[in-house]
Each structure stands twice: as C-alpha cells, then as structure tokens.
Computed example of a mutant assay.
Amino acid sequence: MSKAEQREQMINGAGFIAALDQSGGSTPKALALYGVQPSDYGSDEEMFAEIQKMRARIILADDFTRDKVIGAILFERTLSEEIDGRKVADYLWSVKGIVPFLKIDKGLEDTANGVQLMKPIPGLAETLAKAEGVFGTKERSVIHEANAEGIAAVVKQQFDVAREVIAAGMVPIIEPEVNIKSDTKAEAEDILKAEILKNLDELGEGQDVMLKLTLPSKANLYDEAADHPRVLRVVALSGGYSTDQACDLLAQNGKMIASFSRALTEGLSKQQSDAEFNAALGSNIAKIYRASV
C-alpha cells in the first residue's frame, strides 16, 4: 500500500467517497430499505452478515471503481470480513483502487446545549494500530441548534480525537453533522465554520485532516475551509436528502465532493437481479459522481 498514492487520490482524485459504515444502530434501517426485515434475521450476527452481503454486492459491482469512487468508509467489524478471499480494506485498494477509511466513533451522547457529542471511544489506540491497510478514519457528532457553546464543544472534541488519529499516522475525517431539519441550520453552519477555521489554524505542519459536512444552506460556505493548508478535502454528507436533492445541492458547492450513504444505496434491493441491482447502483454512482466533479 502506498500512503503517498492514497493521499494524492484523496487530494486530487475525481469522484466521491462511499459511506459503507452502517453500524449496529443504523444497520436495521439500512437493511429494511434494502428489503431485509428484522424478521429475516434472528440475532446480531445474522444482521451483520446480511449487511456485509449488501456491502460486498456494492463493492463487487462493475461501476464501483476508482474511476468514480475514490474512497470508502467502513464499519470496524467490516475490517475482519473478506471479499474474494481478501480482507475488505485490502480488496478495496488492491483490486478496486479505492482508498479505505474506518468509522471509529461509538455513537452519540444525549443532546445537551443543542448538540450531541461523541461517546467515549475506548481502546482507540489499539483500534488504530490494528487497522491494517486503512488510510484514515471518520468520527461523527451532530448539531441540532445554533448554540455557540455546544458547537464549540463539538468541534473541540472532534479535533482532540483527530490529533490522536494523526499521531497514529492516519488522516481523520472530522464530521460535525448539522441536522438538516434544524430551524437554525444556516445560523448553526455559520458558527460551525468559524469554529472549524479556528481549530484548523491551531494544527501544526503535517497535521492534516479532511472535513465531512452537511450540505450548507449557503452555497460554497465552506470554500475557505477547503482552501486551508491543513485540509486535504471537504466532503458532503447526504443527511437524509434524497439522491436527487443531495446531488442538486452538492452541485452548487464547487469545492465539496460527496460522501453519501443512504443516497448511494437508494433504490437498491436484495430482491433485485444482479443486472437490476447493478443498473440502479450505477445510476446512483453516475449522479453522485457528476455532482462531485
């Protein structure tokens, strides 16, 4: 694995990052949308086996290549899974040419000061040390209101974790999501931008990050962050928008690329034939790619 080659792809690659990191909390909903109901599995093991089959079907699809998909975010459990006899992270890079990332957060605290901080991440150093073949990480918080104190706490926590990731030789994707249904979304984004820029200025040479942000109410709001010397790339989350809505909004932001999850898998079903599945996924990939470039 060439870290330099992966870094170059993250900075200059044309395409988007696929979010395939559904965790224990989000997996049942993702499976239901895919046509797999809770009655179809009887344990967590069977549930995770079903979501791995879905991920593998996506990764193996003809259109899922570095030509349009430059990176993919994985759930920690996925690192021990295999596709065609290779660990998933190795398969992504060695076979598909797609840079692997790892979701490291353990979920969210209850809402306080209009935000949800990340829960503690026990054993983070050990997790990072075992993440063989992984280029970077992703960690998510959520902002519900334009509360300056809460947003400052979210960003500080994110950058504190990011420094641990950087110290382990990896590139963190910082994800302070703003709830798209917030009545104060635009105001929250203005506060968030200021806090992000302040924290970016405190990073030293070589302490590089990526940002994963909600598609902003004001187009190109995060251009200044995208141009910051410590930022490799700014990517957008779909946040509950449909594929078409997310792509329309993304196309208005010239310095953001996509990192979509639900919008990537929209319309996919276990019951589809391989031809139907590949056509639906290929259509989504093409839309998200066009919006990203």
Rank of each mutant, 00 (worst) to 15 (best):
residue 242 S to N: 08
residue 58 I to Q: 00
residue 41 Y to L: 03
residue 240 G to S: 03
residue 272 Q to I: 02
residue 3 K to I: 10
residue 43 S to W: 12
residue 250 L to C: 04
residue 33 L to K: 13
residue 93 W to I: 12
residue 81 E to T: 04
residue 223 D to H: 06
residue 290 R to H: 12
residue 140 R to V: 08
residue 91 Y to L: 03
residue 155 V to N: 05
residue 135 F to Y: 15
residue 148 A to D: 14
residue 66 R to W: 05
residue 58 I to S: 00
residue 274 D to Q: 10
residue 137 T to A: 12
residue 218 K to A: 12
residue 122 P to Q: 12
residue 81 E to F: 05
residue 156 K to G: 01
residue 38 P to Y: 12
residue 52 Q to G: 00
residue 159 F to V: 11
residue 14 A to Y: 06
residue 245 Q to K: 13
residue 78 T to K: 07
residue 263 A to T: 10
residue 145 E to Y: 07
residue 12 N to D: 12
residue 208 D to W: 04
residue 114 G to M: 07
residue 167 A to S: 13
residue 49 A to I: 02
residue 195 E to F: 04
residue 290 R to Q: 15
residue 39 S to I: 13
residue 259 S to G: 07
residue 179 N to P: 00
residue 136 G to L: 05
residue 266 E to F: 02
residue 263 A to P: 06
residue 140 R to E: 02
residue 62 D to H: 08
residue 261 S to I: 03
residue 46 E to T: 09
residue 204 G to M: 10
residue 65 T to D: 06
residue 209 V to G: 06
residue 14 A to N: 13
residue 37 Q to F: 05
residue 6 Q to N: 04
residue 283 S to Q: 14
residue 3 K to F: 14
residue 65 T to Y: 01
residue 151 I to G: 03
residue 10 M to T: 11
residue 194 A to P: 00
residue 248 D to H: 07
residue 224 E to R: 09
residue 75 F to Q: 12
residue 239 G to W: 06
residue 200 L to W: 01
residue 265 T to A: 07
residue 11 I to R: 15
residue 269 S to T: 05
residue 260 F to T: 00
residue 64 F to D: 00
residue 78 T to Q: 04
residue 139 E to C: 06
residue 255 K to Y: 03
residue 260 F to V: 09
residue 194 A to Y: 00
residue 7 R to H: 11
residue 159 F to E: 13
residue 229 P to R: 12
residue 48 F to P: 00
residue 228 H to G: 03
residue 244 D to L: 09
residue 238 S to V: 06
